[in-house]
Amino acid sequence: MKKYFCSFRMGMKSEYEYRLNFIFVLFSAFFPMIIQTFLWIAIFENSKKPIVYGYTLNQMILYTILSQMIAKFLKTGVETEISTDVKTGGLSKYIIKPFNYLLYKLFGFVGKKAIHMEIILAFILIVLVVFNWKVQITMSIGRGVVFLVAVFLALILNFYIFCCLSMLSFWVTDAWGIFFGARFLIDMMSGAIFPIDIFGETIIKVFQALPFQYMVYFTVNIITGKISLHMALQGIGIQVIWILVLGLLTRYLWKRGLLQYVAVGG
């Protein structure tokens, strides 16, 4: 266990140096936020209805801001890291050691995100305070705690989704295109670009059967108050189930992949 904690600390340390970079990354989320915010203002003004896609204007703006931030926070680069390890043979130096490579990566990733956590929480707090002052939103300590748990689970879920995807690099020579494309698709399906309510009913049904919406859409809506506390707890259960399913799938693919890796001689 100690070695994984060491990986956690290493992830934290290396990211600490570059924490200002993360602020830059957050800045890049700033423009889509502005564009969408004014888009929604125009839409609400025009429609004359107080509720569009099931959101009030304030809820929608809050969703727009928080979803962009959460999406940037969840972002991982683990698929390229693992893929490079597989491609350049860097994996060899890990698999001869008596430890679990995937767990090692997970702890490193969480350590890295621990640094981002404080920044993102500060941002979210500012946003909420400003919103609370301007308009009333249904906020309670209970919701806050559930939200934090959901964000943490979303982080691990996101890790396993991309980890699972990165197993492709055992079989596909140039997987970067797949990773890059997948990132956009997953963003779309997780509600990072727009809330998934904008899609038609059929598509929403499909999305509900997939794990992606439990990363951004579900998490942010705990705060916007669009879902009840009861539903939120249920959602957390689903998050856990998806983490288990994807974790096991990744493990299975990893074992198959390693056989392949050893067979071709790394």
Partner: peptide, 20 residues
């Protein structure tokens, strides 16, 4: 795919029949 994610904006515009 990048284009598709941008087209979501257009989809929203049509969907809500927005006039600005």
């Amino acid at each position: 795919l990048i284009l598709l994610s941008k087209l979501l904006y257009t989809a929203v515009v049509y969907n809500t029949d927005m006039v600005v």
